[in-house]
């Protein structure tokens, strides 16, 4: 994998900040894939804003030399939404973990999907809480033994792909850190896509999750692109989104599940559609006087 990562680091958007991740952490692959996607798209650094929550994976913005906010646990979507409202010219990328996206911040994720705001959300899903040293997460397998579930997790894992599709996300994909080239393509297309993109990434935690390892995933994942799946077909996408569950995690599709062209929030909003809010002039004296007259 190290060879592959080197290969994808052509143009450098990275900062000098050394990532905090453990050696072998899946987040290195995501870091490389984002770097490659930005480089392939030739985006100007100053026009990219990476917004994260809290957790191991949320250290991501610091590893880049773009603009960014390392915000609160679960709240990166509202912060990113605010950024996009203010300046729709910025490429806004959300990066966080499964706790951020599917636990404490699930509500925001679903509403962002519904709103179809043009943000690319990359969720590093390691099925565990790593930064807090190994508690069950919303995507932990049923039966998984963690520090907070010593007798086995009682709950079934959340299905973010099915949730995102049904909530109205217009680009829904899944990647695997063991295949950063494939991931870079999905991230690149997600950034290109005009609308809310969710890219769920199996990003193994080598320290606290000894169940969902690289090898565990390697034996299970297959690429939708090679299976004849039509990502424009919503029903087929939903069916594919259920396959991991229904196969008892024996067959786990990765790749693009669903893509739809639907006007974004910014396209529909009568003010935002006129261009970035930050560039629009504020109300004139005449416009203000006219409002004041309403109170006469």
């Amino acid at each position: 994998m190290a060879e592959e990562i080197k290969q994808v680091q052509k143009q450098n958007y990275k900062s000098n900040v050394k990532p905090i991740w453990c050696a072998g952490c899946g987040d290195f692959g995501v870091n490389a894939a984002i770097n490659k996607a930005l480089s392939d798209l030739g985006l100007q650094k100053s026009n990219v804003m990476i917004v994260s929550g809290i957790g191991c994976s949320s250290a991501m913005p610091h590893t880049f030399s773009t603009y960014g906010v390392h915000s609160l646990h679960g709240r990166l979507i509202p912060v990113a939404t605010g950024v996009k409202f203010a300046n729709s010219d910025l490429t806004v990328i959300g990066t966080g973990g499964d706790g951020d996206a599917y636990g404490i911040g699930l509500g925001h994720m679903l509403h962002a999907a519904r709103r179809n705001i043009n943000i690319t959300y990359i969720v590093m899903n390691n099925e565990i809480y790593g930064l807090t040293t190994g508690q069950a997460s919303p995507t932990s397998m049923q039966g998984a033994k963690t520090k907070s579930t010593p007798h086995g997790n009682l709950e079934v894992p959340e299905n973010p792909i099915a949730l995102a599709i049904s909530a109205g996300a217009t680009y829904v994909a899944r990647a695997f850190s063991g295949d950063p080239m494939h991931m870079a393509e999905l991230v690149k297309n997600g950034i290109r896509h005009n609308g809310f993109s969710l890219i769920d990434v199996f990003s193994p935690c080598v320290t606290f999750n000894d169940l969902n390892t690289y090898d565990w995933f390697r034996g299970r994942v297959y690429k939708l692109e090679q299976s004849g799946h039509d990502p424009k077909n919503k029903i087929a996408a939903l069916e594919k989104s259920l396959e991991a569950d229904t196969s008892g995690w024996e067959k786990v599709p990765i790749g693009l599940f669903y893509e739809e062209n639907r006007p974004t929030y910014e396209d529909l909003d009568p003010v935002l559609k006129l261009g970035p809010l930050i560039n629009q002039p504020s109300p004139s004296k005449e416009q203000l006087d006219k409002i004041m007259e309403e109170y006469l």
């Binding site: 609160l72 912060v79 990113a80 605010g82 996009k84 930050i278």
Partner: peptide
């Protein structure tokens, strides 16, 4: 948090 994002982006 939307307000914070918007303020961070300069408006």
């Amino acid at each position: 948090n939307v307000t914070i994002g918007a303020a961070s982006a300069g408006i």
